[in-house]
Design a protein around this nucleic acid. Structure first.
Lengths: 239, 239
DNA sequence: ACCTGAACACCGTTCAAGT
DNA sequence: ACCTGAACACCGTTCAAGT
């Protein structure tokens, strides 16, 4: 009765014990290595050396598995630690934390979006963001839209990072990137001078830290600018 | 030899002539109605009353079909009409046009991202964006990142619009939305006051126009703010 | 040039059954 | 409580063959 684990090309074999937690872990790992499309019930079952239907004991269906993956990412966020009240700087901290949490699993960032308003941790997060924005003087609608934009900015920074290519198996990424770069530099120089000039920066990201910081700064700067355009709170309170 | 079209629940039957163009059209339409996951070679073949393999004459494989869908969306953009040189206002126009092009097929916006740097029209668009940003004084890296952010902002505004729910079949969307709204308003009022206050604004968008305008303004305001923080161009040119 | 038939290796999921 | 077996209705894709 030896388990004849006909393992896939990807290393990491037979994760011994089957559990909901282990399934979610494995799913996140394969999404990181081969893209979210590579995550399937049957594939996971094979990885665990078990029949596909075994997974259905631990997880209701695939949608619930994807939701659990999103929840797991959001759960790595520490709950808002500060009540220091620094205004929009608190929002920057929140987005920064979000980015670092999401960047642990760049292939699954989209799942977080589906879950922010559904799971406990996401709700705490959203409440905090709305609190910051409301105190900053934004209306209910503006605060709702900006809170959404905060999460979406984090997602787009991580999943849209130049060179991320989360949909492609890890070992092919370098080749694909090189191909994209070559395609850009091979463009007619008279029509696409900037595309050629920016080819490297568009296809790869040599400094993740400053890329993320710049992206977050862009968002925060936008929010600050919108805040300045707000009607005078004194007058609004009086009127 | 009457075609016994065992049509799906969705109306719109037997699109007569099979062609690459017709296939892409139909694919975009079903993505809009039932989400991108509902688009399949076999399903499309059935819609056209034809064998699945027939499609492979017009389209190399599914990836190429998805790429063609992305290209089609970008092709609806009119090429940059103006050389009026209004600086970052030109960028706003570009993003605005992008948003309106993408919002025609909210379920397929993600495909545009895969194709901006690959297809002709996307390259023209990117070149234009980079030109605006470089002239505005940004570095090669900044321009590349901001040009990407411009597209991603458009995508996130359209696909992330409250109430969009592009992954869910159209006829279920209202019910899902109502459920989400109810879940938020049913939260404990002491812990989640803002989530309750903003429940309606978070789950639906009653004014698309101002939603999009606000989102674009947020991005442009951020870019303008970053521009102001740039080192003095005179001094930079001298040094 | 354009389409079909048969086949292969995949999916998610249900339902009854085992221990 | 936890897992298996068999079955169903789906996928994308190849390859040889038809007209």
């Amino acid at each position: 009765m030896i388990a004849t684990s006909t393992s896939r090309r990807t290393a990491g074999n037979v994760q011994s014990t089957l559990s909901r937690e282990a399934i979610v872990d494995r799913a996140l790992a394969t999404a990181d290595l081969e893209g979210l499309d590579a995550v399937s019930i049957r594939r996971l079952a094979q990885d665990f050396g078990v029949t596909p239907m075994a997974l259905y004991w631990h997880v209701k269906n695939k949608d619930e598995l994807l939701a659990a993956m999103g929840d797991r990412m959001l759960d790595t966020l520490v709950p808002p630690p500060d009540d220091r009240e620094r205004g929009l700087d608190d929002l920057r901290d929140l987005v920064t934390q979000l980015v670092s949490a999401l960047s642990a699993h760049p292939g699954s960032t989209g799942l977080a979006q589906l879950r922010v308003l559904q799971c406990e941790r996401g709700q705490v997060l959203s409440e905090r963001a709305l609190d910051i924005l409301r105190r900053a003087g934004f209306s209910v609608e503006q605060s709702a839209n900006l809170a959404r934009a905060a999460l979406q900015t984090a997602i787009m920074l991580v999943s849209g990072r130049p060179g991320a290519e989360t949909r492609i198996p890890q070992d092919e990424r370098a080749a694909v990137l090189a191909g994209k770069h070559a395609a850009l530099t091979g463009l007619p120089a008279d029509r696409f001078p900037h595309l050629i000039e920016c080819a490297a920066a568009l296809t790869d990201c040599d400094d993740e830290i400053s890329y993320y910081r710049g992206g977050i700064e862009l968002f925060i700067a936008g929010v600050q600018a919108l805040q300045r355009r707000l009607p005078d709170p004194q007058a609004a309170a009086a009127g």
